[in-house]
């Protein structure tokens, strides 16, 4: 595995994503759902909303970094608020 040049932060990063995917897979099996239409006027399931959250979070982090808005961990707080909004309204 040394050729992959792992570091602890990136391992944690991928661990969290893997955990999220497993959690949502279990959720989808245990509690099947009907897609719903939110403010984007597209039908979304929980999985879609997770994807929108993760992709959006990546951009939020980049924008935060690009504008040097402050220490990077604070961007995660913005991401959390964004995630809550996505799961509530999208």
């Amino acid at each position: 595995m040394s050729w992959m040049a792992w570091t602890m932060p990136t391992a944690i990063f991928f661990g969290v994503i893997a955990l999220l995917l497993v959690t949502f897979t279990i959720l989808a099996i245990k509690f099947p759902e009907t897609p719903r239409t939110g403010i984007l006027r597209i039908e979304t399931t929980r999985g879609d909303r997770l994807f929108i959250t993760l992709l959006g979070s990546a951009f939020i982090n980049l924008i935060w970094l690009g504008f040097e808005a402050g220490p990077q961990p604070y961007a995660l707080l913005v991401c959390l608020a964004y995630a809550a909004a996505v799961f509530r309204w999208v």
Partner: peptide, 16 residues
């Protein structure tokens, strides 16, 4: 892709 993510937070001068 995971390897690329690992590279992106590190610097290297070769020799792994």
């Amino acid at each position: 892709l995971m390897t690329v993510v690992n590279y992106s937070v590190q610097d290297t001068f070769g020799r792994n």
